[in-house]
Each structure stands twice: as structure tokens, then as C-alpha cells.
């Protein structure tokens, strides 16, 4: 992974590059320094693992990490899109706290219906329908009723988590389906289906968000809703769309989740923290510190490699959450100093 990818992705994401002089220029330089600093930190940690952890650099291990990151990545993309469309204001802006619980509910639907012997197509449609239904509920609450996204999705998270528990009785529901077999054993050019999924999904996200008109419109809606409305964009429809998309991502990730474990397991909702970390850490790779798809992919892989490196080094997995938390704080603290002070 070279430094070119995120820089290209983020410059594509910033339709209005700053070209001022004086303080503006100094701020731009500071931002550049932070972006490079984040990349250097990433590179440094990779280097450390490569030197100390046996087998870290092997192709097998790298694809293993990519495979493991597929689920997190899909969910992080969903979250990033919601944050982009709802604005990065953390309390009043876009956020979907229900995405992980939704994925858990979808996984439970998928596993339960598969076990009950339904046709794989029906099962897939039902799973997708569940994810989209939860997304639609969020969209209705946020756009239709005007509830703060943070609160609306918190309530929906509880509903989704409760429904998952009632469906599975808090047990592991093992599942077998041709879809799962394809995901588990399918390979193309020596790379597993799961890894291909993340590669293709990321490519698609970067293409759509940073190289079509949809992306800049989405950033406009999130960054300045009034201006976007004045420019003729249907702000409500875009924001509702982001929640539907995050519901879709939850359903998509749930199928990957079930394929990885051959079962739906309780505790999927705990992924939420890692998903938020991936989406929020990704902002550090962009010029204006907004979520970008390239940045989200980088931070997802970073979190994946971090966990993997710790595992290879024999460091207890109990550290992982704490290190992730410290990294979020570090990243956000640094970026908050680069931003103009707001009162």
C-alpha cells in the first residue's frame, strides 16, 4: 500500500481545494503534515510488525487479514456514507449506531431461514429485506420525524438487538447454504471470495463516491444542507438514502459474517465500536478531515493488521480495544488542533 492511494482518493473527495495564502496556506500545510503523519504512523506500525512478528509479511497472512477485514470494511463503508451525508457534526450529524445490531439481526434471519430449509434466493431476499427495513426505519426517524440520528439509531439498535435475541434465543444458529459454500471455498486467481468481496466493494465505493456526481452531492448535503437545498438537491432523499445504504451494508455484511463462522452468533452488536473506529479514523486521511472511501479502507485494514500483528506477537487481545480507543483519541485530538477553533 503506497501513500498515493489515499491522497488521490481524498483529493478527489475535496471538490474545493484550498488555494489561499497566509494563514490558509499554513493551515493547509498543517493538514498535509497530519495526513502524512497518519500515513507514516500506519507505515511505522506495519514496519514494526514486519520486523518483529514472524510471518506477518507473508502473502498468506496479508490475505488472511484482508479476509478478516471484509465484514468490518463493509460495515465501515455504510457508516462512512451515513456520516458523509449527515454531516460530520458528531452530536447532530449523521451516525448509525444500529448498523452492527442490524447486521446481527440479518445474520440471525439468514441462519434461521437457511436452517428451516428455505430456498437460498428467498433467504437472501429476506436478509436483504430485513437490513433495508431497519435502514428504512432509521431513515423515517431521521428524515421524516426529525429525530437526532444519534438518538433514533440508538433506539433502533435496541430494537434490532432485541429482535436478534428473540430469534436466536441467544444461541449459536449454525447454517448451511450454497451461498455460504461459495463464499467459504470459492477462489479466483488464488484469492478467496471473501477477500475479493472487500477488494471489489472498496473499488466500487471509491468509484461511486469519488468519481461520479453522487459523491460531491452527498458531501454537499452533509456539509451544508441549506446550500445543497438551494442548489436544487433533495436533501431529505439523500440523507434517507444513506440510512438505506447502511441497512444494505448491514445485510451484506451479515452474509459474510455467517459464511465466516458457518453460523450466526450472539454478540455481533459488539462490532459497533470497531466499525465506528474504522469510519472515524478514516477521516484523518482526507484533506478536510471528512470520511472518504479510501481513508475508510485504509483504517479498516489498519485495524485488521493491528489485531493480526498483536496476535502474531502474542500480545493479549485484551489490549486491542484500548489501543483502538487511544488511536481514535490521538487522531481526533491532532486533527482538532489543525481545524480552526469554533465557539
Amino acid at each position: 500500500m503506497t501513500a498515493a492511494t489515499p491522497v488521490a482518493a481524498s483529493s478527489a473527495a475535496d471538490p474545493l481545494p484550498e488555494t489561499g495564502t497566509g494563514p490558509n496556506r499554513r493551515k493547509a500545510l498543517a493538514a498535509l503534515a497530519i495526513r502524512l503523519g497518519a500515513l507514516l504512523t500506519f507505515a511505522f506500525i506495519m514496519l514494526y510488525f514486519a520486523l518483529t512478528a514472524r510471518g506477518f509479511l507473508s502473502a498468506y497472512n496479508a490475505f488472511n487479514v484482508v479476509e478478516q477485514s471484509a465484514i468490518l470494511g463493509v460495515l465501515a463503508f455504510g457508516t462512512a456514507v451515513v456520516i458523509v451525508g449527515g454531516g460530520a457534526e458528531v452530536q447532530t450529524g449523521g451516525i448509525d449506531l444500529s448498523i452492527a445490531a442490524n447486521a446481527g439481526l440479518c445474520a440471525a434471519v439468514f441462519a434461521t431461514l437457511s436452517t428451516a430449509g428455505f430456498n437460498p434466493t428467498v433467504v437472501l431476499l429476506a436478509t436483504l429485506g430485513t437490513g433495508l427495513a431497519v435502514g428504512a426505519l432509521n431513515a423515517f426517524a431521521v428524515v421524516g420525524l426529525g429525530i437526532l440520528p444519534l438518538l433514533a439509531t440508538l433506539a433502533v439498535m435496541n430494537v434490532a438487538a432485541g429482535l436478534e435475541l428473540t430469534l436466536t434465543e441467544n444461541t449459536v444458529v449454525s447454517a448451511a447454504s450454497p451461498v455460504l459454500a461459495f463464499l467459504q471455498t470459492g477462489r479466483f486467481l488464488g484469492v478467496s471470495t471473501l477477500a475479493w468481496t472487500l477488494i471489489l466493494f472498496s473499488a466500487l465505493m471509491i468509484l461511486v463516491v469519488h468519481h461520479t456526481a453522487v459523491g460531491p452531492r452527498l458531501y454537499a448535503v452533509g456539509g451544508h444542507p441549506e446550500a445543497a437545498r438551494a442548489a436544487g438537491l433533495d436533501v431529505g432523499a439523500y440523507v434517507a438514502g444513506t440510512y438505506l445504504f447502511s441497512g444494505f451494508c448491514a445485510a451484506f455484511a451479515s452474509v459474510l459474517l455467517v459464511s465466516r463462522l458457518s453460523a450466526s452468533t450472539p454478540g455481533t452488536g459488539e462490532l459497533l465500536l470497531s466499525v465506528l473506529a474504522a469510519a472515524l479514523l478514516g477521516t484523518v486521511f482526507s484533506r478536510r478531515f471528512v470520511p472518504t472511501m479510501g481513508g475508510t479502507l485504509l483504517s479498516t485494514l489498519f485495524i485488521g493488521f493491528l489485531a493480526n500483528g498483536f496476535q502474531l506477537l502474542g500480545v493479549s487481545s485484551y489490549w486491542v480495544a484500548g489501543v483502538q480507543g487511544a488511536l481514535i483519541l490521538l487522531v481526533v485530538a491532532v486533527t482538532s488542533f489543525a481545524r480552526p477553533q469554533e465557539h
Partner: peptide
């Protein structure tokens, strides 16, 4: 100057 949401999220992880 970290926003309360992110600051307390980080503390929750730690």
C-alpha cells in the same frame, strides 16, 4: 478539544 461523543467513545474502548 475532542468532541464529547468521540472523547467518551475512546474512553469507553480504553
Amino acid at each position: 478539544r475532542i468532541s464529547p461523543f468521540l472523547a467518551t467513545l475512546g474512553v469507553l474502548f480504553i
